[in-house]
Structure formats: structure tokens, C-alpha cells
Amino acid sequence: MDSKVVVVTGASAGVGRAIAHEFARYGSILVLMARNRVSLEGTVREVEELGGKAYYHTVDLAFPEQVERAASETEKNIGPIDIWINNAMNSVFSPFNQMQPDEFKRVTEVTYLGQVYGTMAALKYMLPRNRGKIVLVGSALAYRGIPLQSAYCGAKHGVQGMFDSLRSELIHDKSKVAITMVQLPALNTTQFGWVKSRLPNKPRPMGKIFQPEVAARAIRYAAQHNRREILVAFPTFKAVIGNKFFPGLLDRILAKNGIDGQQTSEPVGKERKHNLWEPVPGNHSAHGTFDHLAHSRSPLLWMSTHWRVVVLLTLLFILVIILIIAFKIQSPPVPNHIP
């Protein structure tokens, strides 16, 4: 990863900020995109403290001309883009029947079309060179929608469909440009403090929570390896497999637990700001307010990224079992009495 030019969208906070930290440790040249200039400058400082180098563009990913301009300036002033990570997102916590059309459109434009525009901008430069890597940041919700996040779930489903189509096309064209989708679990990020919400209580990640660094490690691995897809944690695996075989059952489970499971017991303050239309001012963090609940390791991710070790240990275990059985079969019976 040393000296590779890596573009990260949504890099001002949350997962995007953690991704910048992760790649900085490996010597990459970061190009950060988001709307919040102050928070982008904060990310740049943190990258430099880690010994890396970073530049930024203030970009609203909902506008393709802004994305293309930032990509063009990166190619001209910094160097050829090696890796493009589509991470920017937005959401609204709200029952579907209270959503407004402009809110649904905005979430779709940022969370889905933002990845489309980013991918288009990256391919414009990668395809003629016949090299490069694009990482799409997905979610368990790309496979299984949940209550109160219809716009976000729909957008992530859209990203999944676009990814399937594009990957098939690249394989057909025998292109050396690679694309991977990384499906995230619930994460302790800043989005729960500033996503627009109509819930009576403060939003929270649903289910088992992981730190954003877990996602960042998975995304860095995806950028280095030609994997089709990475499921970052066991809750993601459960959602994908469960929805494949028992979607109706999940409908009922989520109807029962999915509303309260996305809220804390703390009422929402009247002063709460949201970032649907404009960024929340200030310099923000990679972490949200759930550090006390969040896990910093994912056993499933370790097994996925060390699959050769897992296969070897499994084969050794099977071999030991076979040897034990063979030994017992070949051993002469022990007499039960002395003549």
C-alpha cells in the first residue's frame, strides 16, 4: 500500500475517518472527500500524525460534477488513482409513512448514487490503464431491510445490484480493474448522533456493535485482495443467510424487535442537529457514543482474512481424528480376564 493514491469518500467522520487512519499506517497517499471542510482538515491532521500524507476536496457526493472534478484534480495534481473507496452515506430514521419524498431522494442520491458517481469517476481513469481497485462499502442491510431505515436499506440494496452487474461486465471484458463489496455490521460511528430522526428516543446501532476500525481493516484487506465480497462480522453473516432461507420469519422478528432495538432509553433533545442537507458543524470523530458496547475484534473477519490458516487447521484436525479412529480400529482388543 506504500505510496498508493487512495480516494476515500465520506472521510470526515465515522468509518471514512477510520479508513483514512488505517491506510495512513500503511503509507498510502490519502485523498479525502466529504462536505465538512473543518472535519476533513481534522482527518488530514490525524493522518499526518500517523506519518501519512493526505489531501482533501469538499464534495457533496450527490452531485456527479463535483465528484468528477475532484477525481480530475487528483489525477492531475497528486497522481493516478490506485484505489477508490465508496463510503459516503446518509440516512433518516423514520417510519416509511412519515418520510417525505425529498428526504427519500436525498438519502438515495448520497448513499446509492454517490457510490455510482464515485465508481464512474474511478473507472474513467482506471479502465484506460487497465488497473485499479474499487471498494464499495455495503451493509448487512444490503441484503436485509429493517424498520425505520427504508431509504437507507433501499439505497444499499441498489449498491448491491449495481455491484453485481459491474463485476460481471469487468470479468467479461477481462479487465484488470477489480471491484469488491464489503458488508458491514452495526458500528459505533457518529451517524447515530446526527442522522435525521423522527424517533422519540436517541437512535442506536441495532444488535451487536463493532468499532469502526474493524470495518477499516476489512476495507484495507479488500483493497489488497481480489475478493468478490467480505462479510465483516457474524451478525452480517446471520442477516445474509437468514434472509436467504427465512425472510418471512425475519419480517416478524424485526416487527417485534426492530423498532425498540434501534433506540436508546434517552429522549431526543430539541436542540439535536442533523446532516441530511448540510453537514453538522465542527470537527468530528471516527467513534460515536457507544464505545462501552462496541467490540474491537471480529472472529469472522479474522477467519475470512486468514482463510489459509483456517483451512490448514481444519485439515490437521480431520487428519488427527482419522488417525485416532485408525489407531483404535487396529489396536488388539484388551482381554477382560486373565486365564
Rank of each mutant, 00 (worst) to 15 (best):
A222M: 03
P80K: 00
M33K: 00
L323V: 04
E213Q: 11
S298P: 08
P95I: 01
A255F: 13
K156H: 04
N283I: 00
I253S: 09
L312N: 12
L32G: 05
R167G: 06
K256F: 15
G158H: 08
S165V: 15
A70V: 08
L166A: 02
L319V: 02
V59E: 05
H172R: 10
P205E: 10
A121D: 10
Q100S: 10
E169W: 05
G138P: 11
V159C: 10
G114R: 01
D173V: 02
Q211R: 14
A24M: 08
L50S: 09
K208L: 12
H337L: 09
P299D: 00
K273M: 12
Y125M: 06
G27R: 03
S3M: 08
T58K: 08
T236A: 10
R129M: 13
V92W: 04
I241H: 06
F93P: 07
L199T: 00
G258F: 13
R272W: 07
C153L: 07
I19Q: 00
Y26P: 01
W277A: 07
K238R: 11
V214E: 13
R37Q: 13
L249D: 01
G242K: 04
H21F: 12
A286D: 15
P339F: 09
E109M: 09
A186G: 13
A223L: 01
L199C: 02
L312I: 09
D60G: 06
I324F: 14
K105L: 11
G79F: 09
F234N: 11
V59N: 03
R252M: 12
H157K: 07
A122S: 05
S94N: 03
I324D: 09
M33T: 03
S285M: 06
L315W: 08
G282S: 05
R227T: 10
R35A: 04
Q100N: 08
T189I: 13
H287I: 13
A186I: 01
E213N: 09
V59L: 02
P279W: 12
H274S: 13
I325L: 14
H337G: 07
G14L: 02
V268S: 07
V107H: 10
V268Q: 14
T74M: 06
G10T: 10
A88S: 13
Y125L: 03
Y112G: 04
K256Y: 12
Q66E: 15
G207P: 07
I146V: 15
E213D: 15
Q115H: 15
L301R: 03
S298Q: 02
K202M: 08
